[in-house]
Design a binder for these strands. Structure first.
Length: 310
DNA sequence: GCGCCTTGATGAAGTAAGGA
DNA sequence: TCCTTACTTCATCAAGGCGC
């Protein structure tokens, strides 16, 4: 292995899909980056990129190598951050999470406990599981929470292995129906799936954050006649509150949010409705104190919502 | 099919910085 | 001062996509 710069070049080349563009981004010349990549390939004995006139693409082994390279660079960044002055480091948290009220509630609680005078650098991204795995693997985020449908658990475990990520199961649950306390079905202890035919589903409008079973389950029977796609969470809850013939599929929510918007959650028996959330992090990653506090807040939030749905 | 364009690969010549 | 290393600049070539 020549040096860490070569890894950096290779990662940039993968990111841009072009040696020329990577060279431009790295403030170098194309021949130099081309030569560096070639030397790197020679030194490790594999072809990292397939060259084409349209650009370069990682080979199968190259993609595997780049995953390790990104891990090394992320760990190096973490090591270097140790030597930075404490005042500049501040209170750091960098996470990718699913759109889930219990997680955002934990995050709010985490923020409340921070010292606003000590400086903070918080990166909180709501995104889908694949993007979260990619972000954590590449070092864009240190910690992640991913959601997987239980029947696809094997697929996710294979993906985690591919991204060289470790995981910790934190929450198993079924999606619930969320509706106004004045909803015609709100008085029923459990809702039948067919009961939903007469009502309007509120769905999340951003398919890049697919946290709803109706989006995640292409094979799920489409019983709804009416559907409203809303992008913004507060608007979703406001609509559920004000329009009592609407409902929404959600993961178990904290009581304070339900009370605030005068909403109730109802169980509804549907097939393949078992999900699991898990923490993910890079192999060898050492949790910071703030990571640990956030993780504890998430666990506390899970304990609270779990008590409610029992 | 041809010409043009883009892309990557390679080589030569030169520059700058650092170390012996 | 000389050598090494890293880098830039320039030129050239091959391969493939694209429009006419």
């Amino acid at each position: 292995m020549n040096n860490l710069l070569h890894l950096k070049y290779a990662v940039e080349v993968e990111k841009t899909g072009s040696i020329s563009k990577a060279a431009h981004n790295l403030y170098l010349n194309q021949p130099q980056v081309s030569k560096a990549i070639r030397e790197l390939e020679t030194s490790i004995g594999i072809t990292i990129f397939d060259r084409t006139p349209m650009g370069v693409y990682p080979t199968k082994k190259g993609a595997e190598f780049l995953t390790y390279a990104k891990n090394i660079l992320a760990q190096l960044e973490a090591m270097e951050s140790l030597s930075r002055p404490e005042s500049k480091k501040g209170q750091i948290l960098s996470v990718s999470v699913p759109r889930a009220s219990y997680v955002s509630s934990a995050f709010t609680s985490f923020l409340n406990d921070l010292d606003k005078d000590s400086g903070m650098n918080i990166d909180y991204r709501e995104t889908h599981s694949v993007r979260a795995m990619k972000s954590v693997s590449e070092g864009s985020n240190d910690l992640g929470i991913i959601r997987c449908q239980m029947r696809f658990e094997g697929y996710f475990l294979t993906a985690l292995q591919k991204y060289a990520l470790k995981h910790e199961d934190i929450f198993e649950f079924e999606y619930l129906l969320l509706m106004s306390k004045d909803h015609p079905l709100a008085k029923q202890k459990e809702v039948n799936y067919k009961d939903l035919l007469d009502f309007t589903e509120v769905a999340h409008g951003d398919i890049s954050v697919p946290s709803l079973p109706s989006i995640n389950l292409p094979d799920k029977p489409k019983v709804f006649k009416n559907r409203i796609a809303i992008y913004e969470r507060a608007s979703q809850l406001e609509i559920l509150n004000r329009i009592p013939y609407t409902y929404m599929w959600v993961s178990p929510m904290p009581k304070d949010i339900l009370d605030k918007f005068e909403l109730v959650e109802k169980k509804c028996s549907v097939p393949k409705n078992k999900y699991k959330d898990m923490f993910i992090y890079r192999e060898g990653y050492v949790f910071s104190d703030y990571d640990k506090i956030f993780m504890e807040k998430v666990r506390e939030s899970i304990s609270k919502v779990s008590l409610m749905i029992k």
